[in-house]
Amino acid sequence: MNTAPIHKPTESELEILQILWRKGDCTVREVHEILEKNKDAGYTTTLKLMQIMHEKGLLSRDTSSKTHIYRSLVNEQKTQEQMLNKMIDGVFNGSAARLVMQALGNHEASKDEIDSIKKYLDELSKK
């Protein structure tokens, strides 16, 4: 996987990346069928987006057979970190605490999620 800094994926590109991260290598048709379940998306639009993502270096494309197979070239964890850091800096003035408090204040967390957060905070405070 590529670990170099990436271009910030657009919302549509991120939807495609999430499919590829979850399912692995896919054809345009496979990606399109998954996208169509949640939104009205034309096949040619999906194809064009994936071609652009290939040009940007976000995806690789295996053209050895008639049906091209696409693969993500960017790491999910690294992409999430880069996008989150940009949001923390740009929206929350560099404060991760403000981001967490905003997220927990606006969304109901399950008991398991809260327990997991407490455990993580305990581990951080021990370092």
Rank of each mutant, 00 (worst) to 15 (best):
T67C: 13
N38W: 14
K48N: 15
L35C: 06
E36F: 07
H54C: 14
F92Y: 13
S65C: 08
E15V: 06
Q82C: 03
T67P: 07
E11V: 10
T46Y: 01
I69R: 10
L84E: 07
T10P: 00
T63V: 09
M83A: 03
C26G: 02
S65R: 15
Q82H: 03
D89F: 08
G94K: 02
S64G: 08
G90C: 05
R22M: 13
I88K: 03
I16F: 00
L73M: 11
E30A: 11
I19N: 04
Y43S: 06
V74C: 06
Q51F: 01
M53P: 01
E15F: 12
A41T: 10
L49E: 11
L84Y: 08
G90Q: 14
T45G: 15
L20C: 07
H54M: 07
M53N: 02
Y43M: 09
H32E: 06
T63S: 09
E11D: 11
Q18G: 02
K86Y: 12
Q80T: 11
E36M: 12
R29L: 13
Y43A: 06
E81T: 09
L49A: 10
L20K: 05
S12Y: 06
W21H: 08
H54Q: 14
V91I: 15
V91Y: 04
D62W: 09
T46I: 01
L47E: 09
L20D: 07
S12P: 02
G57I: 05
L35W: 01
E36S: 10
I19F: 02
W21L: 14
E13A: 08
Q51A: 09
K78F: 11
D89H: 15
T79S: 07
L47D: 05
Y70W: 06
T46A: 10
L73H: 02
V91M: 06
E13F: 02
K86G: 08
L35D: 00
A97F: 12
K48D: 11
I52V: 13
E55C: 12
G24K: 01
S60P: 03
Q77H: 09
Y43Q: 06
F92G: 00
E30T: 14
M87Q: 13
E15Q: 12
K56G: 01
M50L: 01
D62R: 13
N85K: 15
N75S: 12
N75M: 04
E15S: 15
H54F: 09
D89M: 13
E30I: 06
S64I: 09
L58S: 03
K78V: 14
S95T: 03
N38E: 13
I52G: 03
L14S: 00
E33F: 04
K48Y: 12
E15I: 04
I34H: 07
T67H: 14
K48T: 13
S95F: 01
S72C: 08
T63C: 08
G94S: 04
N75L: 10
T79V: 10
Q80V: 13
L47M: 13
K86V: 07
H68L: 00
I88M: 05
C26W: 00
S64L: 11
I19Y: 04
Q80K: 12
H54N: 11
A97T: 15
D89W: 08
E36H: 10
